[in-house]
Computed example of a mutant assay.
Amino acid sequence: MATHVITGAGSGIGAALARRLHERGDELVLLARDAGRAKELAAQLPGARTLVGDLSDPDRLSWAFSHQSLPDRVDSLLHVAGVVDLGSVAETTPKTWRHQLNVNLLAPAELTRHFLPQLRAARGTVVFVNSGAGLSASPEWGAYAASKHGLKALADSLRGEEKQHGVRVTTVYPGRTASPMQAKIHHQEGRPYDASAWIDPDSVATAVLTALDLPADATMTDVTVRPGG
């Protein structure tokens, strides 16, 4: 039975992925920003373990984990959580830049550092759920795209560094996916939101599961998922 550490399991792609893994009987360790959120996640997925750590404050993750029991085995670390706040470079403040860089880039780097010993022992997989914005940047998306471009660089570097330890690294680049984040983006863009127009989170979860279930002799390095139909 595999053990998966997941961020962003409360909604969207993360929730779909956690549910699918839970349904097939895998062990889940869900990262929550606070104790209240941890309780909610545990109630949604009975039997799942939780860890508390605020991704918006990566400097304190080490302290938070020192007061909790980390799993002895980690077969996969799934970075799904993310935040977005659109705005032009002319208008985006350092606070807004910092928040997106912390959650979308620095926290994944810090979480990976903490769980690498277990991932190496299990010859496990790290999955970064990135974004189409991690491949190209559009107007008003500067801070978010910068954080996601950085996440691509993190994944590419990690893949080369950890190959010798048998750790696989996959980046998934979803297009617009039906989720609370997508609803927020449409609101910021001043456009009506129709969830049926975009990718179902389960479709992205299927791509992640495919990467996880690939035989050990191969790696899916980069997977792009776009709206179809």
Rank of each mutant, 00 (worst) to 15 (best):
P227G: 08
G36E: 09
L55T: 02
W97G: 10
V80F: 06
V169R: 02
R176Y: 13
Y144Q: 04
V204Q: 01
S138I: 00
A32P: 02
P108H: 07
S88N: 07
L101C: 04
V89H: 02
L77G: 06
K184R: 15
L212D: 05
T96R: 15
L70N: 02
S11T: 10
A218S: 15
E40T: 14
D26Q: 12
D72H: 05
T210R: 12
A16N: 07
D57E: 14
V5Y: 08
V208L: 09
S69F: 01
V89C: 08
R176V: 15
G53I: 14
P71A: 07
L77Q: 11
R24M: 05
A145L: 04
E189D: 10
L151W: 06
V103Q: 04
G53R: 12
R49M: 03
T96S: 14
T50S: 12
S62F: 04
S62P: 00
V80H: 03
S69T: 15
V208M: 09
Y193M: 04
L45C: 03
G124P: 11
G124V: 10
V208R: 05
T224R: 15
H22Y: 02
A107H: 09
D200W: 01
T3I: 10
S138H: 11
Y173N: 05
R19Q: 15
K163L: 14
G36F: 01
L106F: 15
K39I: 00
K95S: 13
L30Q: 08
N104L: 07
V127K: 01
L77K: 08
A218K: 13
P71G: 06
E40V: 15
E23N: 10
L154S: 04
G36C: 00
P174S: 11
V83H: 03
G87W: 01
M181T: 11
V225E: 02
V29F: 06
R120A: 12
L212V: 10
M220Y: 09
D217R: 13
V129N: 05
T171P: 03
S196Q: 12
Q164S: 14
H22K: 07
S66F: 02
F115D: 01
L86V: 01
D213Q: 02
H114Q: 12
G132Y: 03
H67W: 00
L154P: 01
A211I: 04
S196C: 00
K95M: 09
H67R: 14
E91G: 04
H165L: 00
R98V: 00
P227R: 04
D54K: 12
D26A: 14
A218G: 13
V80N: 05
P192W: 06
Q100D: 09
T50P: 02
S157L: 10
G25I: 11
L86N: 01
G229Y: 12
G175M: 02
L31M: 12
R168E: 11
P46R: 01
H79M: 11
P46C: 02
S136V: 09
V127F: 00
P71W: 07
M220E: 07
I185P: 06
K163S: 15
S136K: 13
F65H: 11
D85S: 14
V126T: 09
L78D: 11
P227C: 07
A18I: 03
S136T: 10
E140V: 07
V89D: 07
